[in-house]
C-alpha cells in the first residue's frame, strides 16, 4: 500500500466512536444485554414473588432490591470453579459460554429502531430461528460432557422437548412471512404500518408465544432444568460463572424472544405520537416479558409425554390451520 500506516491510537479512537462499534458494544449490543438481563432477573423474582404473595428481593438498594441481581453477579464471579473430575472439561466449560454467545447473538438481528439495528440481514428471521435451533444442542453437549446423571437426563429432556416445539415455532412464524412477503425483520416492521399483524395472526401469535416459552425452558416447559425432578437438570454441575452463564442465557433469550414477538406481531418500533421509536419497541418488549413471567407464576409444569403429544398434534395442527387461514387472507384480500 502506498498510504502511510495510520496512527494506531487514532485508529482505535476512530473505531471506538464509530456508530457500528457503539451499537455492538453499548446498545443494543453487549453492555445493554448484560444490564437488561440482570434487571429481568430481578423483575422475574419480584413479579413471581407478588404472584405467590411474597415480597421478593428487597434489601440491596432502597428501590425494592433492584440491585440484587448485580450483587448476585459479583458474588458468583468470586466463587471457586471446581470442575467434576469425570467431566469432559473443554466442552463442559464451553457449552454454557457458547450458549450465552448464541443468546446474545440474537440481539444483533432485532430492529429496536432504524438507527439501533446492528445487522439488517435480508434473511433475518430464519437466521434468528437457526440460532435458536442450535441452543438445545449446546444443552445436550453440556449434559453429556458433565458425565453425571442429572445433567445427562436434563440434556436428553432438552432434546426431546426441542422435537416438540421446534416445528410449530417455525410454522407459526411462517404466517408473518406470508403476510409481509419478506424475511427481513425491519421490512416486517414497516409492513405493519397499516395494522399490526397480531390481528390477522392472532392464532399464530398465540402459538409463537407458547412455543417460544418452551424454547426458553421456562415454566410451564422447564423440563430440562426442572428443580424438583432433576435438580436443575443440565445445570446441576455448574457453579459460579458457568451457572451465571447458563441462567443468564435464559434471560437473554427471554428478552430476545419478547423483542422478536413485538417485532413480528406488535408492530415493532412503530407507535403513535411524538415519542421515539426506541420507546415503543422497549415498551412492547417489556410488556411481553411481564406476560411470560406471569405464565411462570400461573401454570404448573407439563409432563414430557404431554408436551410431546401436544406439540406434535395440537400445536402442529393449529400451526397448519394458521397457515391455511393466512393463505386465504393473503389471496382473498391482496391489499392488506
Amino acid at each position: 500500500m502506498a498510504e502511510p500506516f495510520p496512527d494506531p491510537i487514532q485508529m482505535t479512537l476512530a473505531i471506538m466512536t464509530s456508530p457500528l462499534f457503539l451499537k455492538i458494544a453499548i446498545f443494543p449490543g453487549l453492555t445493554s444485554i448484560a444490564i437488561i438481563a440482570a434487571l429481568l432477573t430481578w423483575l422475574d423474582r419480584k413479579i413471581t414473588a407478588r404472584v405467590q404473595l411474597r415480597i421478593g428481593p428487597q434489601y440491596v438498594s432502597p428501590l425494592g432490591g433492584i440491585l440484587q441481581s448485580f450483587a448476585d453477579l459479583i458474588k458468583l464471579a468470586f466463587k471457586e470453579l471446581p470442575l467434576p473430575e469425570k467431566a469432559d472439561k473443554f466442552f463442559f466449560v464451553m457449552a454454557p459460554v457458547f450458549g450465552m454467545v448464541l443468546a446474545g447473538g440474537l440481539m444483533g438481528l432485532i430492529p429496536f429502531s432504524h438507527e439501533t439495528l446492528i445487522s439488517n440481514l435480508e434473511i433475518g428471521l430464519p437466521v434468528f430461528l437457526a440460532f435458536v435451533t442450535l441452543s438445545p444442542t449446546l444443552v445436550l453437549l453440556a449434559g453429556w460432557s458433565a458425565n453425571s446423571k442429572y445433567p445427562f437426563i436434563g440434556g436428553l429432556r432438552s432434546l426431546f422437548q426441542q422435537t416438540a416445539y421446534e416445528i410449530p415455532l417455525w410454522l407459526s412464524a411462517i404466517g408473518v412471512v406470508m403476510l409481509a412477503g419478506t424475511f427481513n425483520l425491519e421490512k416486517i416492521v414497516l409492513a405493519q404500518s397499516k395494522g399490526w399483524f397480531i390481528v390477522p395472526q392472532a392464532l399464530g401469535a398465540l402459538l409463537f408465544l407458547i412455543t417460544s416459552v418452551a424454547e426458553q425452558e421456562r415454566i410451564p416447559f422447564d423440563l430440562p432444568e426442572a428443580e424438583p425432578e432433576v435438580i436443575m437438570g443440565w445445570q446441576a454441575e455448574y457453579t459460579g460463572f458457568f451457572f451465571l452463564a447458563a441462567q443468564g442465557a435464559g434471560f437473554i433469550k427471554l428478552y430476545a424472544f419478547s423483542a422478536l414477538f413485538a417485532t413480528l406481531y406488535l408492530g415493532g418500533y412503530l407507535g403513535p405520537g411524538p415519542l421515539p421509536p426506541l420507546f415503543w419497541s422497549l415498551l412492547k418488549t417489556i410488556g411481553i416479558v411481564v406476560a411470560v413471567i406471569l405464565l411462570r407464576g400461573t401454570f404448573g409444569r407439563v409432563r414430557i409425554d404431554q408436551l410431546l403429544r401436544a406439540g406434535w398434534t395440537i400445536l402442529l395442527g393449529l400451526a397448519l390451520v394458521n397457515i391455511v387461514i393466512t393463505y386465504f387472507i393473503v389471496v382473498g384480500f391482496p391489499t392488506i
Binding site: L20, G29, G105, I118, S119
Partner: peptide, 11 residues
C-alpha cells in the same frame, strides 16, 4: 448486514 452480524458475533 452480513459483515455487521459477523463483527457482532465475533465481539
Amino acid at each position: 448486514g452480513i459483515p455487521e452480524i459477523v463483527y457482532y458475533l465475533g465481539f
